[in-house]
């Protein structure tokens, strides 16, 4: 009985880690996709704004990128060391 419970807990941790990695990636993928598309649209419309838009792109990219990266860190910790 004891073994069964610990086994289930370990399995659940793996599932939880997998969910964190996957769902975090989905959100960021949509976000970065929209962001990149709009960036290209903006540059195509007004190429002279390229340097300014690139800076802003990277700032927002860093913001969007952060949340799934945190999920990756916690998820990997749960899977391999939890």
């Amino acid at each position: 009985m004891e073994d069964l419970i610990t086994l289930e807990l370990a399995t659940l941790l793996h599932v939880a880690g997998g969910l964190m990695l996957g769902l975090g990636a989905v959100g960021a993928a949509v976000g970065v996709g929209v962001l990149g598309g709009k960036y290209l649209e903006g540059v195509a419309r007004q190429p002279e704004l390229l340097p300014m838009l690139r800076t802003q792109l990277f700032i927002v990219l860093g913001l969007v990128d952060a949340v799934p990266m945190i999920a990756v860190g916690i998820g990997l910790y749960l899977i391999f060391a939890g």
Binding site: L63, G73, Y77
Partner: peptide, 17 residues
């Protein structure tokens, strides 16, 4: 604070793996 920590922690974790 958490954004910087989370990114670097995840990066370090992957390097360790």
């Amino acid at each position: 604070g958490l954004r910087l920590f989370g990114n670097l922690y995840a990066g370090e974790m992957i390097f360790v793996l």
